[in-house]
Amino acid sequence: MTGPKDLDPSSRRIMIGEELHHARERAGLTQQALGELLFVSGSYVGQMEAGTRRILPDMAHKLDEILGAGGFFVRHCTKANRSKHPEQFAEAAEAEAMAIGLQEYAGMLIPGLLQIPDYARAVFLDYQPTAPDEVINELLAARMERTHLLDNPTKPLLWVVLDEAALRRPVGGPEVMARNLRHIAELARIRRIVVQVLPFSAGGHASLHGSLKIMFFEDAPPLALIEAPATGQLMDDPATVARHQLSYDLLRANALTPKQSLALIASVAEDYAHEDHDPRV
Protein backbone atom coordinates (compact mmCIF):
# COMPACT_ATOMS: atom_id res chain seq x y z
CA MET A 1 0.00 0.00 0.00
CA THR A 2 1.23 3.48 -0.82
CA GLY A 3 2.14 5.29 2.40
CA PRO A 4 2.11 9.00 3.31
CA LYS A 5 5.84 9.22 2.51
CA ASP A 6 5.02 8.61 -1.16
CA LEU A 7 2.50 11.43 -1.50
CA ASP A 8 3.29 14.57 -3.45
CA PRO A 9 2.79 17.83 -1.49
CA SER A 10 -0.70 18.57 -2.84
CA SER A 11 -1.93 15.02 -2.14
CA ARG A 12 -0.36 15.20 1.30
CA ARG A 13 -2.26 18.44 2.03
CA ILE A 14 -5.53 16.74 1.07
CA MET A 15 -4.72 13.88 3.45
CA ILE A 16 -3.87 16.34 6.25
CA GLY A 17 -7.04 18.30 5.51
CA GLU A 18 -9.14 15.16 5.86
CA GLU A 19 -7.50 14.43 9.21
CA LEU A 20 -8.19 18.01 10.30
CA HIS A 21 -11.84 17.58 9.36
CA HIS A 22 -12.16 14.38 11.41
CA ALA A 23 -10.21 15.80 14.37
CA ARG A 24 -12.37 18.93 14.43
CA GLU A 25 -15.58 16.89 14.39
CA ARG A 26 -14.26 14.61 17.15
CA ALA A 27 -13.66 17.75 19.20
CA GLY A 28 -17.24 18.88 18.58
CA LEU A 29 -16.17 22.11 16.89
CA THR A 30 -17.67 23.82 13.86
CA GLN A 31 -15.36 25.39 11.29
CA GLN A 32 -16.35 28.80 12.62
CA ALA A 33 -15.66 27.80 16.24
CA LEU A 34 -12.23 26.38 15.39
CA GLY A 35 -11.49 29.46 13.31
CA GLU A 36 -12.19 31.69 16.31
CA LEU A 37 -9.69 29.73 18.39
CA LEU A 38 -7.12 30.10 15.61
CA PHE A 39 -7.98 33.77 14.91
CA VAL A 40 -8.97 32.99 11.32
CA SER A 41 -12.32 32.74 9.53
CA GLY A 42 -14.43 29.62 9.33
CA SER A 43 -13.93 29.65 5.55
CA TYR A 44 -10.16 29.56 6.10
CA VAL A 45 -10.61 26.39 8.17
CA GLY A 46 -12.76 24.96 5.37
CA GLN A 47 -10.02 25.66 2.86
CA MET A 48 -7.41 23.95 5.06
CA GLU A 49 -9.70 20.93 5.33
CA ALA A 50 -10.13 20.86 1.55
CA GLY A 51 -6.36 21.10 1.04
CA THR A 52 -6.61 24.36 -0.92
CA ARG A 53 -4.73 26.33 1.74
CA ARG A 54 -1.55 25.44 3.56
CA ILE A 55 -1.44 24.82 7.29
CA LEU A 56 1.45 27.06 8.28
CA PRO A 57 3.86 26.06 11.11
CA ASP A 58 2.38 28.30 13.82
CA MET A 59 -1.12 27.12 12.84
CA ALA A 60 0.00 23.48 13.00
CA HIS A 61 1.22 23.95 16.58
CA LYS A 62 -2.11 25.48 17.58
CA LEU A 63 -4.09 22.69 15.91
CA ASP A 64 -2.08 20.02 17.73
CA GLU A 65 -2.77 21.77 21.02
CA ILE A 66 -6.47 22.53 20.46
CA LEU A 67 -7.38 19.17 18.92
CA GLY A 68 -5.04 17.00 21.00
CA ALA A 69 -3.43 15.65 17.85
CA GLY A 70 -0.16 14.62 19.49
CA GLY A 71 2.06 16.54 17.07
CA PHE A 72 0.43 15.12 13.93
CA PHE A 73 0.01 18.48 12.18
CA VAL A 74 3.51 19.75 13.00
CA ARG A 75 5.07 16.49 11.73
CA HIS A 76 3.21 16.39 8.44
CA CYS A 77 2.86 20.05 7.45
CA THR A 78 6.57 20.63 6.83
CA LYS A 79 6.63 18.10 3.97
CA ALA A 80 3.25 19.26 2.69
CA ASN A 81 4.48 22.84 2.41
CA ARG A 82 7.47 22.10 0.20
CA SER A 83 7.10 23.81 -3.17
CA LYS A 84 8.94 24.45 -6.44
CA HIS A 85 7.47 27.95 -6.53
CA PRO A 86 8.84 31.13 -4.90
CA GLU A 87 7.64 31.27 -1.29
CA GLN A 88 5.47 34.35 -1.80
CA PHE A 89 3.49 32.61 -4.58
CA ALA A 90 3.65 28.97 -3.45
CA GLU A 91 0.30 28.82 -1.67
CA ALA A 92 -1.50 30.56 -4.54
CA ALA A 93 0.12 28.29 -7.17
CA GLU A 94 -0.87 25.20 -5.23
CA ALA A 95 -4.45 26.41 -4.78
CA GLU A 96 -4.60 27.22 -8.49
CA ALA A 97 -3.70 23.61 -9.31
CA MET A 98 -6.77 22.41 -7.38
CA ALA A 99 -9.24 24.95 -8.77
CA ILE A 100 -12.15 24.02 -11.00
CA GLY A 101 -12.51 27.59 -12.23
CA LEU A 102 -10.17 30.58 -12.62
CA GLN A 103 -11.01 34.17 -13.45
CA GLU A 104 -8.01 36.40 -14.07
CA TYR A 105 -7.34 40.01 -15.00
CA ALA A 106 -3.83 40.66 -16.34
CA GLY A 107 -2.72 44.28 -16.39
CA MET A 108 0.82 44.58 -17.77
CA LEU A 109 1.86 41.00 -18.52
CA ILE A 110 0.42 37.91 -20.15
CA PRO A 111 -0.62 35.69 -17.20
CA GLY A 112 1.60 32.75 -16.27
CA LEU A 113 -0.80 30.02 -17.43
CA LEU A 114 -0.76 31.51 -20.95
CA GLN A 115 2.96 32.21 -21.26
CA ILE A 116 5.26 30.38 -23.67
CA PRO A 117 8.78 29.52 -22.42
CA ASP A 118 10.60 32.37 -24.20
CA TYR A 119 8.15 34.95 -22.86
CA ALA A 120 8.41 33.57 -19.32
CA ARG A 121 12.22 33.53 -19.51
CA ALA A 122 12.23 37.17 -20.61
CA VAL A 123 9.98 38.10 -17.66
CA PHE A 124 12.30 36.38 -15.19
CA LEU A 125 15.42 37.93 -16.71
CA ASP A 126 13.87 41.40 -16.72
CA TYR A 127 13.02 41.02 -13.04
CA GLN A 128 16.31 39.35 -12.04
CA PRO A 129 18.89 40.50 -14.61
CA THR A 130 21.88 39.22 -12.58
CA ALA A 131 20.41 35.83 -11.59
CA PRO A 132 22.49 32.79 -12.64
CA ASP A 133 21.13 30.46 -15.31
CA GLU A 134 20.25 27.73 -12.82
CA VAL A 135 17.93 30.09 -10.91
CA ILE A 136 16.20 31.25 -14.08
CA ASN A 137 15.88 27.67 -15.32
CA GLU A 138 14.29 26.54 -12.04
CA LEU A 139 11.79 29.38 -12.17
CA LEU A 140 11.04 28.63 -15.81
CA ALA A 141 10.51 24.92 -15.15
CA ALA A 142 8.02 25.68 -12.35
CA ARG A 143 6.20 28.21 -14.55
CA MET A 144 5.90 25.81 -17.46
CA GLU A 145 4.73 23.03 -15.16
CA ARG A 146 1.83 25.30 -14.17
CA THR A 147 0.77 25.65 -17.80
CA HIS A 148 0.03 21.91 -17.94
CA LEU A 149 -3.17 22.66 -16.05
CA LEU A 150 -4.58 23.48 -19.49
CA ASP A 151 -3.74 20.01 -20.80
CA ASN A 152 -7.02 18.88 -19.27
CA PRO A 153 -9.65 19.64 -21.95
CA THR A 154 -12.28 21.00 -19.56
CA LYS A 155 -10.88 21.89 -16.13
CA PRO A 156 -10.12 24.38 -14.84
CA LEU A 157 -12.45 26.73 -16.69
CA LEU A 158 -10.14 29.68 -17.38
CA TRP A 159 -11.58 33.12 -18.15
CA VAL A 160 -8.97 35.82 -18.73
CA VAL A 161 -9.36 39.55 -19.23
CA LEU A 162 -6.17 40.88 -20.82
CA ASP A 163 -5.44 44.58 -20.62
CA GLU A 164 -4.43 45.92 -24.03
CA ALA A 165 -1.14 46.95 -22.38
CA ALA A 166 -0.25 43.26 -22.00
CA LEU A 167 -0.62 42.88 -25.78
CA ARG A 168 1.33 45.99 -26.70
CA ARG A 169 4.35 45.65 -24.36
CA PRO A 170 6.94 43.66 -26.39
CA VAL A 171 8.31 41.42 -23.64
CA GLY A 172 11.07 39.30 -25.18
CA GLY A 173 10.81 41.15 -28.49
CA PRO A 174 8.40 41.04 -31.45
CA GLU A 175 9.02 37.44 -32.47
CA VAL A 176 8.32 36.13 -28.97
CA MET A 177 5.23 38.28 -28.66
CA ALA A 178 3.91 37.07 -32.02
CA ARG A 179 4.26 33.45 -30.95
CA ASN A 180 2.75 33.98 -27.51
CA LEU A 181 -0.27 35.88 -28.83
CA ARG A 182 -0.83 33.19 -31.46
CA HIS A 183 -0.71 30.62 -28.67
CA ILE A 184 -3.43 32.50 -26.78
CA ALA A 185 -5.50 32.89 -29.93
CA GLU A 186 -5.29 29.16 -30.60
CA LEU A 187 -6.44 28.30 -27.08
CA ALA A 188 -9.41 30.61 -27.61
CA ARG A 189 -10.19 29.15 -31.05
CA ILE A 190 -10.31 25.59 -29.71
CA ARG A 191 -12.53 26.86 -26.88
CA ARG A 192 -10.12 25.83 -24.13
CA ILE A 193 -10.19 29.31 -22.60
CA VAL A 194 -12.37 32.39 -22.69
CA VAL A 195 -10.38 35.55 -23.31
CA GLN A 196 -11.41 39.18 -23.51
CA VAL A 197 -9.29 42.27 -24.09
CA LEU A 198 -9.83 45.42 -22.05
CA PRO A 199 -8.96 48.13 -24.60
CA PHE A 200 -7.20 51.40 -23.84
CA SER A 201 -10.38 53.14 -24.97
CA ALA A 202 -12.17 51.78 -21.88
CA GLY A 203 -10.27 54.33 -19.81
CA GLY A 204 -10.22 53.88 -16.04
CA HIS A 205 -11.43 50.58 -14.65
CA ALA A 206 -12.05 48.59 -11.47
CA SER A 207 -8.59 47.02 -11.17
CA LEU A 208 -6.13 49.81 -11.85
CA HIS A 209 -4.24 48.69 -8.73
CA GLY A 210 -2.94 45.58 -10.52
CA SER A 211 -3.63 42.00 -11.47
CA LEU A 212 -6.49 40.00 -9.97
CA LYS A 213 -7.30 36.30 -9.84
CA ILE A 214 -10.31 34.52 -8.35
CA MET A 215 -10.14 30.76 -7.81
CA PHE A 216 -13.14 28.47 -7.41
CA PHE A 217 -13.12 25.00 -5.85
CA GLU A 218 -15.45 22.04 -5.75
CA ASP A 219 -15.49 21.62 -1.96
CA ALA A 220 -14.19 24.92 -0.58
CA PRO A 221 -15.04 28.64 -0.73
CA PRO A 222 -13.38 30.76 -3.44
CA LEU A 223 -10.11 32.64 -2.98
CA ALA A 224 -8.99 35.97 -4.40
CA LEU A 225 -5.37 36.79 -5.23
CA ILE A 226 -3.92 40.27 -5.68
CA GLU A 227 -0.43 40.27 -7.19
CA ALA A 228 2.36 42.84 -7.23
CA PRO A 229 6.12 42.54 -7.88
CA ALA A 230 7.63 39.91 -5.54
CA THR A 231 4.46 39.61 -3.51
CA GLY A 232 0.96 38.21 -3.59
CA GLN A 233 -1.96 38.46 -1.17
CA LEU A 234 -4.33 35.50 -0.99
CA MET A 235 -7.70 36.39 0.54
CA ASP A 236 -10.51 34.15 1.77
CA ASP A 237 -12.87 36.53 3.60
CA PRO A 238 -16.23 36.09 1.80
CA ALA A 239 -17.02 39.81 1.73
CA THR A 240 -13.55 40.65 0.36
CA VAL A 241 -13.75 37.92 -2.28
CA ALA A 242 -17.22 39.16 -3.28
CA ARG A 243 -15.86 42.69 -3.69
CA HIS A 244 -13.10 41.44 -5.99
CA GLN A 245 -15.65 39.36 -7.89
CA LEU A 246 -17.59 42.56 -8.55
CA SER A 247 -14.40 44.21 -9.80
CA TYR A 248 -13.83 41.32 -12.18
CA ASP A 249 -17.43 41.44 -13.41
CA LEU A 250 -17.00 45.16 -14.14
CA LEU A 251 -13.81 44.43 -16.09
CA ARG A 252 -15.61 41.82 -18.21
CA ALA A 253 -18.47 44.24 -18.84
CA ASN A 254 -16.09 46.91 -20.16
CA ALA A 255 -13.95 44.54 -22.24
CA LEU A 256 -14.35 43.62 -25.89
CA THR A 257 -16.43 40.54 -26.64
CA PRO A 258 -14.53 37.24 -26.98
CA LYS A 259 -14.94 37.40 -30.77
CA GLN A 260 -13.69 40.99 -30.97
CA SER A 261 -10.86 40.15 -28.58
CA LEU A 262 -9.70 37.18 -30.66
CA ALA A 263 -9.59 39.40 -33.74
CA LEU A 264 -7.51 42.03 -31.93
CA ILE A 265 -5.09 39.46 -30.48
CA ALA A 266 -4.58 37.91 -33.92
CA SER A 267 -4.09 41.34 -35.48
CA VAL A 268 -1.48 42.42 -32.93
CA ALA A 269 0.32 39.09 -33.37
CA GLU A 270 0.55 39.76 -37.11
CA ASP A 271 1.88 43.26 -36.45
CA TYR A 272 4.66 41.79 -34.32
CA ALA A 273 5.41 39.11 -36.92
CA HIS A 274 6.08 41.79 -39.51
CA GLU A 275 8.54 43.71 -37.34
CA ASP A 276 12.09 42.92 -38.37
CA HIS A 277 13.89 44.01 -35.22
CA ASP A 278 13.49 44.38 -31.45
CA PRO A 279 12.81 48.08 -30.71
CA ARG A 280 14.79 47.73 -27.44
CA VAL A 281 18.02 46.97 -29.30
Rank of each mutant, 00 (worst) to 15 (best):
A202T: 04
D163L: 02
H209E: 12
L246Y: 04
V135D: 12
K155V: 12
M15H: 11
V74T: 14
E65G: 07
V45P: 14
D8R: 12
T52C: 10
A95K: 08
G112H: 03
R169Y: 11
D276C: 01
L63I: 06
A90R: 07
E94A: 15
L56F: 04
A80R: 08
F72M: 12
L162N: 07
P174Y: 03
V74F: 03
F72T: 09
R75W: 00
A95W: 10
P9V: 13
I214W: 05
H85C: 05
R146I: 12
K5G: 10
Y127H: 08
R82N: 08
L162M: 12
L264M: 15
R75A: 15
R26Q: 15
M98K: 15
L225R: 05
G71K: 11
I136P: 04
V241L: 06
D163I: 04
I184N: 06
Q196F: 05
S261W: 06
L246D: 09
Q233N: 09
P111Q: 02
H61Y: 06
E270H: 10
N254D: 13
H22S: 13
M15C: 00
R280M: 07
T52D: 03
S43F: 01
P132Y: 01
E275K: 08
R168G: 02
A242R: 07
E134A: 14
F89D: 01
N254R: 15
D271V: 03
A185N: 04
I116Y: 06
T257P: 03
M144R: 10
A69Y: 01
L157T: 13
E164C: 07
M59C: 09
H277T: 09
G107F: 05
M215T: 07
E36G: 01
A99N: 07
S211V: 00
K213N: 02
L56H: 09
A23V: 00
N137L: 08
V241A: 10
D126L: 11
L20T: 08
G28E: 08
S247C: 13
N180H: 08
R182F: 01
G172F: 02
E175V: 03
L114A: 12
I226F: 03
A142S: 14
L157A: 14
E138W: 04
L181C: 01
G51Q: 05
A202G: 03
L251V: 09
L223M: 10
H76N: 13
A90P: 00
G35M: 04
R280S: 15
T2A: 04
N137Y: 05
M108K: 03
A273K: 08
A97P: 02
P222V: 10
V197F: 04
I214E: 09
A178L: 00
I110S: 03
H21P: 00
D58S: 13
R26F: 03
P199D: 11
Y272S: 00
L225Q: 10
T52V: 15
A263S: 14
A122R: 02
D271N: 13
N81V: 06
R121C: 05
I184Y: 07
P153V: 15
T147G: 04
F72G: 03
L109N: 12
L157E: 13
I190G: 01
Y44M: 09
Q245A: 15
V281A: 14
L29P: 12
R53I: 03
A266S: 15
A266E: 15
I110K: 05
L67E: 02
E175S: 14
A60L: 07
A188H: 09
T154Q: 13
L34P: 10
L246A: 11
V161T: 11
A122M: 04
E19S: 11
P229M: 14
A93E: 08
